[in-house]
Design a protein around this nucleic acid. Sequence first.
DNA 1: CGAACCTTACCACGATCGTGTCAAGGTTTG
DNA 2: CAAACCTTGACACGATCGTGGTAAGGTTCG
Lengths: 127, 127
Amino acid sequence: MDALTIHEAASTTGWSARMLRYVERAGLIEPRRSAAGYRLYGPEELQRLRTLRELLDQNDVSLTEVGFALRLRRDEELSAALEGWFEEEPARPVDVPAADWLLWEQDKHEKLLAAATLHATQMMETR
Amino acid sequence: MDALTIHEAASTTGWSARMLRYVERAGLIEPRRSAAGYRLYGPEELQRLRTLRELLDQNDVSLTEVGFALRLRRDEELSAALEGWFEEEPARPVDVPAADWLLWEQDKHEKLLAAATLHATQMMETR
DNA sequence: CGAACCTTACCACGATCGTGTCAAGGTTTG
DNA sequence: CAAACCTTGACACGATCGTGGTAAGGTTCG
């Protein structure tokens, strides 16, 4: 057999066996398994483990953040939603006159009401 | 004055004042300040606060994750590093004597290789 | 067979996240 | 001036993260 078991992979990459399982659970590096369920790390996985360490050390990024980036990369819907939010129009809605806006400075009730209508119109706009 | 103070903004958006400061510290929404340093939330910020809440609720994402996505978006170097890691060649180095590797468990290896190539082509297709 | 591996599933524990609250002090306004 | 805001900073606290350990049980190999 030619692939490394978890402890062997750990000692050659500098990770702990515990962390290798953690990395796997984060979806970052998933080694194949032997018939009995043993994790088998091939050269590809070892390479990725080493570069993953570099990535973390050099870019001040955490394991879970890398995991999230991976999720972003795979979940197109999610990344589109985020992208949409980041690019949300900073322009104030023009068809909602400032009157509503000013009016709403009175007391809490009116404030809430105005906010509700504003919210509604904004939602209609974004649809 | 055309903007809301923090507690007003809180009650119209459903966030707490505490969380508004938290959101600001996460770099997500930074309202302008009055001369005395009071946070002033305009309609634009209120809009973003509401859509931020929707974003979190509908996409099972955390505030810090959105913050990280923003960081990714701004830090081109970081996102390039991550991108590089994700696309790291799954192909084994050819100049390293492949003998060991190739000998070693051919059936599985071929499966792996096939999967890797498939993955690569898929990725190329989506670009 | 027995030693030395591997597996999953827990307990532990400091660090950070998400959130509230409180304190000490400046600002606005009736 | 005093009430009612705002500010930053701190303490608190359950939940999760990052990491180590241990226990109970299956696998591999000399």
